[in-house]
Design a protein around this nucleic acid. Structure first.
Ligand code: FES
Ligand code: FES
Lengths: 146, 146
DNA sequence: GTATTTCCTATCGGTAAACCATGATATAAT
DNA sequence: ATTATATCATGGTTTACCGATAGGAAATAC
């Protein structure tokens, strides 16, 4: 299950993606629109900023915007930043691989084989969907990826 | 990520699945073979018993065995018992559905649409793989489901 | 009846999730 | 400059779960 944090991040990013232009949005505005806890959202956007998904300006007239076009930001990127590995087991993660402590042999482990397929299926969906696609889908348009 | 508990459960069940016959295996034996914490495994098998995946007999000569043929026990069943919903969000879970607190409209929610596909992909893999298939795959044989 | 083995309840330390409070720092308008 | 506005940084709180263990009750075989 996704953390609340991750869901909030996605909600915020989708709002920014719909904004399209370079206009900055306030944390307060985003929080209000989707009624998310403001302080928590602040921390989330900060983390997204550090990871290069959004950019910010502070002080009066400040706010947040996407750091790159919405079709270059995938759900997979967001989930990995917020919740870590997509894989159900560390030993099948490609971005956060770590050997299983208690498994004798990785190559013959049946659990691993199954979970490998699961992780691939998940990654296929999440890495294959961008913010742009999601908002397009939301508007009822069937756009293909570019 | 799967809990440790769930992984232990799968390891134990695969051992029981390989046992094939009606022979009972001791918790201690299973724990020793895969070096799992014995007391913890005890609790796990108990839970699997309550959920009808294994059967037990106690006292001298007791132990555990699968409650039904290994091709009728899927990874999906085990994971749901141990870790709950497969779905990344409760609102896309079919077995543990629960409405999203903070989302205005379920039908237009873009996040939901994406996560729905993820949950389906995961369920397809996990519900489509039985213990029997896993051990067969482990032996190098490419058996199809029956 | 005694040894064995599962069953049951309770507990415990550690860790992470979900927030909130407070203040520092940068920016823009006055 | 001053002030109002925002993000940035740090730290704390509360709650809940995860992994694991302890101690004993209940059932079964010999
Ligand atoms: S090697 Fe990772 S589960 Fe067996
Ligand atoms: S309705 Fe569940 S995420 Fe929006």
């Amino acid at each position: 299950m996704l953390s609340q944090k991750c869901k909030y991040a996605l909600q915020a990013l989708l709002i920014l993606a719909r904004q399209a232009g370079d206009e900055l949005l306030l944390v307060s505005d985003i929080a209000e629109r989707e009624n998310l806890p403001k302080k928590f959202l602040e921390a989330i956007l900060l983390e997204l900023n550090r990871n290069g998904l959004v950019r910010s300006r502070r002080g009066r007239g400040g706010g947040y915007a996407l750091a790159k076009p919405a079709d270059l930001i995938t759900f997979g990127q967001v989930v990995r930043i917020m919740d870590g590995p997509l894989a159900p087991l560390s030993c099948v993660s490609v971005n956060y691989y770590r050997k299983c402590d208690d498994c004798r042999d990785e190559l013959t482990c049946e659990i691993r084989k199954v979970m490998r397929r699961v992780r691939d299926a998940v990654a296929h969906e999440l890495d294959g969907t961008s913010l742009a696609q999601a908002v397009a889908e939301g508007r009822g348009r069937a756009l293909l990826e570019g």
